[in-house]
Design a protein around this nucleic acid. Sequence first.
DNA 1: GATTAAAATGAAAACGCTTCCATAACGTCC
DNA 2: GGACGTTATGGAAGCGTTTTCATTTTAATC
Lengths: 346, 346
Amino acid sequence: MAGIKEVASRAGLSVATVSRALSGKSNVSSRSRRLAQEAAKELGFVPSYHASSLASGRNRNIGLVVPNVQRWYFSSVLEGVSETLLDAGYDLTLYNVGEQPERRSSILNDFLLRKRLDAVIAVALVLREDEIGQLLAVHRPIVGIGGVLRGASTIRIDDEGLARDAAGHLIRLGHTRIAHVTGDAGLNRDFKLPKLRQKGFAAAMAGAGLPVRDEWVVNADFTIQGAYAVGRRLLGTAAERPTAVFAASDEMAIGIMLAARDFGLQIPQDLSVVGMDGHDLSETFGLTTIKQDPRGQGNLAATTALALLNAGKDSDGGKPAAQVQDQEYPTEFLIRTSTAVPPALN
Amino acid sequence: MAGIKEVASRAGLSVATVSRALSGKSNVSSRSRRLAQEAAKELGFVPSYHASSLASGRNRNIGLVVPNVQRWYFSSVLEGVSETLLDAGYDLTLYNVGEQPERRSSILNDFLLRKRLDAVIAVALVLREDEIGQLLAVHRPIVGIGGVLRGASTIRIDDEGLARDAAGHLIRLGHTRIAHVTGDAGLNRDFKLPKLRQKGFAAAMAGAGLPVRDEWVVNADFTIQGAYAVGRRLLGTAAERPTAVFAASDEMAIGIMLAARDFGLQIPQDLSVVGMDGHDLSETFGLTTIKQDPRGQGNLAATTALALLNAGKDSDGGKPAAQVQDQEYPTEFLIRTSTAVPPALN
DNA sequence: GATTAAAATGAAAACGCTTCCATAACGTCC
DNA sequence: GGACGTTATGGAAGCGTTTTCATTTTAATC
């Protein structure tokens, strides 16, 4: 394991110059730089991460906290974050906190604060004010995706408004008997998104003077399987059945579609379904949905975090320091083949 | 930012004793330990990760290299690894290498070797011998999942044998016209699994004296969407259509089932489908499959890595050092409702 | 060629811990 | 109560870089 000292003596330079040369600093003659690089390559020298971090105070490591890597949305964000971080030469430390709230706080204490992360990206996670305060106190930028964090930069979509649009689409088609599939249970209580989308749904219904029937607002935990099970109950009773379903996620919309097929219900003739998110599978199912781009959001979050980091460094430097800001990410309403006028009007 | 010195002076102890007390070492009186802990808590002291790693040579950080976090199998492994690592107080550094091979090598050089990881867990990735050599040379245990790595511990299933069993099940039911959905294209060329499963399929067919028809061995990239597209081509021509499909993954099996429904084919009456992996969705679809437990495999991989680490530490210590070994993970053949005797025999 | 500003260099001081080593306190046993 | 084996303790030496600061070299100007 060659250290920087060996490189220095082989290059005939001092340790200091080698360090500067290899880390691309200025004030190094091109000759010295070349010498240092050659010696480093010949010895296979790679600077020790910890020594370097300890001395410089920088980590080149950003933490990502997600509730559940299994879900499409989160793994897509993860992919996006991972991509831009890797390109920037940063490490990604992943905290898959899962549904247990107690794990979350232990993570914050034991890991995040341990001075080993330059920044934290939190997805769909509402941190308590004191937790944010702790992070900000140690000068760690925080960027949140899909959840507003006071004092942190945020990337989000207008969940409530978009949900209203989605439900509105069904209403404009003439549907009056509309069910809503949501997903609270068991999940992190901090996870506000389902409530927001539910609120948007309720707003659309109210705006059209339509009743929200409690038995038609059902919970499916954001999974295809959950929605499939729920769908069998919802659609099984031929007596009075909704003519349209607005699901708070595409996964759940797909679950509903699968259940509908089991009962021989044609989509969209017998049942309209609209989802949300733009899941990879939604196209295959011809699902009308509001597409968001979680991977792009991940990219943006990482970029934002990096910008914040640089801003902190040369705070009085040339380029204007990046500010904490709230960015709304663009979405796209995709009308496909899963929605039509209700059967009665057909 | 309180350092260990402040803790020491507040506790009225030396820095050395505080360090020992807080890291749970022996040879510390219970009184000193209590004092140190109290002082640390009062000051909100958290040891600096980098300083600690630099001084001790340990990182408490394990790298996980996966091809694609989006795929169910990989995200499940990730979840398992993350879980046991978090419980053990270890960090997880994730390398989502994606399909680009050049990225992989830069990761190895720039990150893995930078002395910042205690061990590496590689999923479905064949490292070159010299790459393994590099890692072993710096005394980093490697554990591989789903790909045999010379000199590394491995957790795997018998892909070829299990594929043979899966295809064999169709054959025993009386099917002779069996298609196979596999997935090579675009993927990391190192990814051997599809070839192994394909080999198992071929072996089963050969064993029964059945021909493998080239046009019935189709590629679907391991996705539902891909298999759906492929399925529409495969099943669309009513002329001569397979009576059964063996898909190399449950996702692809599901894609086939969706395509079959589009053509009004009943499963299993008109078409039998068998998958592999035990995807969360397979139950919902009644899919016959061979279930493996990627999350459990992730748990085991992490445990193995940790054991290897400890073995390295007290190599001549009490408990026998953990050995490099090849572990076959148990699987379960689940016969559900997607398979039956072929239509002709019905 | 002298004068001055700018660029390049090296010695050494951090960075904040862990751990070795020597010493001190504590029991235990005859 | 002295000798001895344990267990606790503190001082100080690392760990391998980066960065400050003082110094030397180079370039630029008159």
